[in-house]
């Protein structure tokens, strides 16, 4: 599924990722944990193809396709979805219209027919209902005036509608209280399936109580420093990143 080999990337000439390798098999959920400034967000942006990040070495393939050769929207069409740490407001564009435009763009790229207004409405309502979202939210401009919890739920809705192969959740727990966190996690868990892989990027172990990973990786100094089972997250929580990393070197 997702193969990252020896990936190096820089922003403004400063190297942030330094030979990162990671293999994420189909249907699995992997967590990436690490201290602030370790390069977690950089990894998610490099995978999604954000401008300003220069790949200086290595390769990334998704189902054998060279991800790094694609434009951001082509990556989305290929099945990459990034749930943003800070979802962006788009004034004047309703969530409904945004999702309709996005889904039809992705469908066109995949050689599928565009959905008409009625089909789209039905689909969006069903998806919103499935994650317990108020239908009225579809009529509001994307993320404008949304609470932290609403924004994250809107990300999950977009994920549910676009049906990606690879979901990258960038610090999805930030800014959420425990109730909102549970709701968002439920939404994400409902989207786990055998054909979908997820990369859960988080600073805190808390999120992993709700979204149980198959593997946990520790990102530090621009590379994966340590990998293990779910128990690794607990160890990090207990000892902190410094000690856990030291343990790896011992």
């Amino acid at each position: 599924m997702l193969e990252i080999k020896n990936l190096s990337a820089a922003i403004d000439g400063k190297e942030i990722l330094k030979g990162l390798s990671l293999s994420l098999p189909k249907g699995q959920v992997h967590a990436i944990m690490g201290p602030n400034g370790a390069g977690k967000s950089t990894l998610s942006y490099v995978l999604a193809g954000r401008a300003g990040y220069t790949v200086t070495g290595g390769s990334v393939t998704l189902n054998g396709q060279d991800l790094l050769a694609m434009a951001p929207h082509e990556r989305a069409a290929a099945g990459v979805f990034l749930a943003f740490q800070y979802p962006v407001e788009i004034p004047g564009v309703t969530t409904m219209n945004f999702l309709k435009t996005a889904l039809n763009a992705v469908r066109a790229a995949r050689g599928e027919k565009a959905l008409d207004v009625m089909q789209m409405l039905k689909l969006l309502r069903a998806k919103a209902k499935a994650i317990g979202m108020d239908e009225d939210m579809l009529k509001r401009p994307v993320n404008v005036g949304f609470s932290g919890g609403e924004k994250k739920r809107c990300e999950v809705l977009q994920m549910a509608v676009l049906e990606p192969r690879l979901c990258i959740l960038d610090e999805t727990d930030s800014g959420l209280d425990i109730d909102a966190l549970r709701i968002v996690a439920d939404g994400v868990n409902a989207l786990r399936d055998a054909n979908r892989s997820m990369l859960v990027i988080t600073h805190y172990q808390r999120l992993l109580d709700y979204i149980k990973p198959d593997r946990v990786h520790v990102l530090a100094g621009g590379r994966i420093e340590r990998s293990g089972g779910p128990e690794l997250a607990l160890e990090l929580e207990e000892k902190g990143y410094g000690q856990a990393s030291a343990g790896a070197q011992a």
């Binding site: 999604a48 193809g49 954000r50 401008a51 300003g52 434009a71 951001p72 929207h73 990556r75 989305a76 069409a77 990459v80 979805f81 990034l82 943003f84 979802p87 962006v88 407001e89 788009i90 945004f98 435009t101 996005a102 889904l103 763009a105 992705v106 790229a109 977009q158 676009l162």
Partner: peptide
Amino acid sequence: EDRLFYCQQRGLSL
């Protein structure tokens, strides 16, 4: 640039 990238990530060309 934030807004453009957000839309691109959802499948829209620039």
